[in-house]
Design a protein around this nucleic acid. Structure first.
Length: 800
RNA sequence: GCCGAAGUGGCGGAAUGGCAUACGCGGCGGUCUCAAAAACCGUUGGGGGCAACUCCGUAAGGGUUCAACUCCCUUCUUCGGCACCA
């Protein structure tokens, strides 16, 4: 009654693997297509998110193969990372053993979905022949000063017992365990991603085929803001307070300045002043508050006078110096010029503390100048410069430029750019990662491990407890080493690398996964790179995608590749939801792919997941939708027994129209409408009966989506080669057009009638026919049309 | 606050200037059956009308156009990123 999906799927999965159908070889004579989905962390089981991500990729891969491209579609495992340690502690096993078991299980599940991976290229980042090259890359960066160690306040996750990169802190919490992140002073290894900030920002422009929102997110993250650093001198002292502003046009309205409570100059400014005691008390209070509470919501801005004055360099006016909690030490110079008339925070603060105000931007030339006293809020919009000396009368946009240049020329300011992006902290106090290839020698200091000594192998065992401290530090055999320079006793670095290091270049490794001279073979990379299509989740919009772009630019500087962006086209697939919520163990709303495969087959699952929504949109799981997909498959299955010798012409025309539509939709990853098109054709076939040519074309169009099913019928029809060795159907433009077409007749833009006419009917004749249409009589009422618009092959609009 | 994406039947969604709701799910009616399942056929935006038919309808309001879900302006709502960012 139902087709035997279990038998069919197992049969073809085995056969494809035996015949190495998906094994890719570089071939300069053929056009290549590198299709990549973000490789998974080997947790052991695949979830619906994986199924969706990899199904989208698989369809694209098989489609491009049928279109004649030389397709590379690799898969591997992002196998280092904390969950392995946690699982090992829990199950009393080794991370290595646990991870390898998970990889095995996951390979099996992926194979059950029928994905067309070239498994010969598989890599796992926890293998030393992979992480050796992490170490190699690290050393190259170290040589160029791009990897360095420094002591600084760092993000610390008390639950994971390790440091985190800025990118790994989401709203003050750890991205992995969601616990609150603390600040700690530690000496850690960093990668100087900030050296590439301009390129990382500017090259976003090139990424026209990336989703706008991903580019916007990276843009925000890099956070460039252009402004001026202005130097205020402290009255009666030679001390200078630099402030940073993006609104140089308002400098003449700066009536006081404010320092962050942590500002190094504060103590000196208040010393011996009558305000000293109150100021110290305030600073003490603020430092007791966590940063999170200081910035949360609508906090009242508090502050105190230092007792000191500074000089505004543009007009030599003396302005009071305050300390307030709304100025942050981390941003800019930790000090601001306050312009209460044109900045809302300054406005509120000035009102509260009765500080002077002066209007310097007037909304428009005709409006009268508002008085500072009558303002109820700051005016932050554009306008005309007033009270700004020689700059009066300029539009403030122009004023901003002119004033900035003028200050720079006079040496009282410097045009500067502030960036939000910080260097990437990569050392982790964990076991299951790549050892950082550095040796500390009491004589020679920090010494890189010589390239010839790589890999620095991760010891098979370490006393990791998850309770803190680098586990490798307790492995004496590992730590104790001879200095490569002086051969004296030395110690190894015991931190490991963040796993995002591993995934920042794996797409290059896939080009030559067994190459042992370098991270990748330049010739192979030159052929296969860039990745033509990358597919993965939006959660990597900043983290992985930014780091990968950075690494690619680094390899370009090493002249190992000649491009600076790794991913030509990016698709971020939407999440799979159940009852409007993300599937998760804690919510208990997980739908297990494996049991769906058991009940309906991988093909039905693939079909449903592609049909239910466009790839980028969130997808609501619908069991009945899956049943519907299965029903459709059974319907197609039954067609093969009722093929006719020759089908009608009209059906053949439908086929050619469908081929056109489906080809276009596949090219744009609009699988849901492609499937709808094929369903429509199938419904027509089901009623009027297809011949072999039509049915085979349908099978080929369906084959990327439901590969086992299509292959089974294809070979049952007598073909001896795989359907994936056949070619995507072409359409005949001559068959797209119908001889007679239905045309819509409108009166004043409203549909009032439809007529069927010959395709090549002359326009005049058509107008005449339309006007004579009796259905139009009540609307025309004998009036003669003012205008008649004819859209060829579509409609006639009679305008009265 | 700034930046980005989106808002269409009961539901998932289609249509990027030319018949709004393709395709699917669900609903309703029917065929087959002792009955059910499966399969097949028909129907399904809302209001009015016995009916032919007609009016309304794509978050709200305005505009451009012979013609607007689609383009422009204003507003609202939802989601995502950044944020006392100077």
């Amino acid at each position: 009654m139902f087709y035997n999906f279990k038998e069919i799927e197992e049969k073809w999965q085995k056969k494809w693997q035996e015949e190495r159908v998906f094994s890719a070889q570089a071939d300069p004579a053929r056009k290549k297509y590198y299709l990549l989905e973000m490789f998974p962390y080997p947790s052991g089981k695949i979830h619906m998110g994986h199924v969706r991500n990899y199904t989208i990729g698989d369809v694209a891969s098989r489609f491009m193969t049928l279109k004649g491209y030389n397709v590379m579609h690799p898969m591997g495992f992002d196998a280092f990372g904390q969950p392995a340690e946690n699982a090992a502690i829990k199950n009393k096993t080794k991370p290595d053993i646990w991870t390898r078991k998970c990889i095995k299980e996951m390979e099996t599940e992926l194979k059950k979905m029928g994905f067309s991976y070239d498994w010969e290229r598989e890599v796992s980042t926890c293998n030393s022949d992979y992480y050796k090259w992490n170490q190699w890359i690290f050393l190259k960066m170290f040589e160029r000063g791009l990897a360095y160690k420094k002591a600084s306040a760092v993000n610390w996750c008390p639950s994971c017992q390790t440091t985190l990169a800025n990118e790994e802190v989401i709203e003050g919490a750890c991205w992995r365990c969601h616990n609150k992140v603390e600040q700690k002073d530690l000496e850690q290894w960093y990668l100087k991603i900030t050296d590439y900030k301009e390129k990382l920002l500017d090259d976003l422009e090139q990424l026209k085929q990336w989703p706008e929102r991903v580019r916007a997110m990276q843009n925000n993250w890099i956070g460039k803001s252009s402004g001026v650093e202005i130097y205020f001198t402290v009255k009666g002292s030679d001390k200078v307070i630099p402030v940073f502003t993006t609104r140089a046009d308002t400098i003449f309205g700066a009536t006081y300045i404010v320092l962050a409570p942590e500002h190094p100059l504060v103590k000196e400014l208040i010393r011996g002043k009558s305000e000293e005691e109150a100021a110290l008390k305030f600073i003490d209070k603020v430092s007791g508050e966590s940063k999170a509470s200081r910035v949360s919501g609508e906090v009242k801005k508090e502050g105190v006078f230092t007792g000191s004055f500074a000089v505004n360099p543009v007009n030599n006016e003396e302005v009071p110096v305050w300390v307030a909690d709304y100025v942050l030490m981390e941003y800019g110079t930790g000090a601001i010029m306050a312009v209460p008339t044109h900045d809302q925070r300054d406005f509120l603060f000035a009102k509260e503390h009765r500080l002077p105000m002066r209007v310097v931007i007037q909304p428009s030339a005709v409006s009268s100048q508002p008085s500072a006293e009558s303002m109820t809020e700051a005016y932050e919009g554009d306008g005309i410069q007033v009270n700004s000396g020689e700059f009066d009368g300029l539009l403030n946009a122009e004023g901003k430029l002119k004033i900035s240049e003028w200050m720079e020329k006079k040496g009282i300011g410097k045009i500067r750019t502030h960036w939000r992006l910080r260097d990437w902290l990569i050392s982790r106090q964990r076991y299951w990662g790549t050892p950082i290839p550095i040796i500390y020698c009491p004589e020679c200091g920090v010494v890189p491990v010589p390239y010839g000594d790589l890999p620095v192998k991760l010891p098979e065992e370490a006393p990791f407890t998850g309770e803190g401290g680098s586990p490798l530090g307790k492995v004496e055999d590992f730590v104790r080493v001879k200095c490569p320079k002086c051969s004296g006793d030395a110690r190894r670095e015991t931190d490991t690398m963040a796993t995002f290091f591993d995934s920042s270049w794996y797409f290059l490794r896939f080009c030559s996964p067994r190459y042992d001279q370098a991270p990748f073979d330049r010739k192979e990379a030159a052929y296969w790179m860039k990745v033509d299509q990358y597919i993965g989740g939006i959660e990597h919009a900043i983290l992985h995608l930014l780091y990968s772009r950075f690494f690619t630019k680094f390899f370009q500087d090493l002249e190992m590749i000649d491009f600076g962006e790794p991913f030509e086209k990016l698709l971020t697939q939407g999440m799979v939801l159940k009852d409007g919520e993300v599937m998760s163990k804690s919510k208990g709303n997980i739908v297990d792919p494996d049991s769906m495969i058991k009940d309906y087959g991988a093909d039905a699952l693939r079909l449903f997941i592609l049909f239910a929504a466009p790839p980028e949109t969130e997808l609501e799981w619908d069991q009945r939708g899956l049943e519907g997909a299965f029903k459709f498959l059974n319907r197609v299955w039954r067609i093969q027994d009722n093929l006719k010798d020759k089908a009608d012409d009209s059906l053949r025309r439908s086929l050619h129209r469908t081929v056109k539509k489906v080809s276009e939709d596949f090219g744009e990853f609009k699988f849901n409408t492609a499937i709808a098109g094929i369903m429509e054709l199938t419904n027509a076939v089901y009623q009027s009966g297809a011949d072999r040519e039509i049915f085979e074309a349908i099978l080929i169009m369906l084959s990327p989506i439901i590969p086992h099913f299509a292959e089974e019928i294809w070979q049952a029809l007598g073909h001896r080669e795989s359907i994936f060795k056949s070619a995507w159907p072409e359409y005949d433009p001559g068959l797209l057009v119908e001889e007679s077409i239905e045309m819509v007749i409108q009166v004043n833009g409203k549909v009032r009638s439809k007529i069927t006419v010959a395709r090549d009917i002359p326009e005049e004749k058509l107008k005449e026919l339309a006007e004579k249409d009796e259905k139009l009589a009540p609307w025309l009422q004998g009036r003669s049309p003012r205008k008649v618009i004819v859209v060829p092959h579509k409609l006639v609009n009679i305008v009265l």
